[in-house]
Amino acid sequence: MQIPHTVELRPDTGLFNAKLGIWLFLASEVMLFGALFSSLVLLRVGSEHWPHGWEILNVPLATLNTAVLITSSVTMVMSWASLKMHEFGKYKMYMGATILLAFVFLIVKAFEYGHKFELGHFPSTDNFYATYFTMTGLHGLHVIGGIIVNAYFWGPGSKMWKTDPERFTNRIEIAGLYWHFVDLVWIFLFPILYLL
């Protein structure tokens, strides 16, 4: 049996099914990260002393990582635009770049974590480090999830381009929506954790 509405729009929603599906998923993700942001506000407001992020975290490295993620969002949307223009070669290049940039982000993050561990700062150290590691850790897991999905669509999953190009293009749009959300979360995490 064929999965319905992978390409043709549903008359009642005006969307292909995966589009509505990913937005519902992202709505649940907003609540997941929202709960952590809310907890951070509660802990910070209720604490007698809370350090400024820039006093103890590496702002230049995090700025570099922000630039890396923003660039990867552009390469992601360009990979989708390339498919729309029927340029599969360019799709492979842009999607490959997106995956590479995601790895760069994780490597920089690993350096940051490693340095903190060397100094003896762990999630158990205090509430600041507990929130820092929880929020950047959960975000990092989302980056890893994005790498797995994007690598599948760059490699074996891209065979669908030959058999069902429209459906494949829609899949990339959906993977892109997830990836841009991961970028969006970082856009808020970066100032809240590092700059305030």
């Binding site: 005006g14 937005w23 709505a27 907003v30 609540m31 929202g34 942001f37 992601m76």
Partner: peptide, 26 residues
């Protein structure tokens, strides 16, 4: 990047509901 500027009404409905609950959390 997420094309919300030209998205269908149903998506906005989902997002408005999300924003309401997000504000409640905050």
């Amino acid at each position: 990047f997420m094309h919300l500027i030209s998205e269908k009404k149903l998506i906005f409905f989902v997002l408005i509901l999300t924003v309401v609950f997000f504000i409640a959390l905050m």
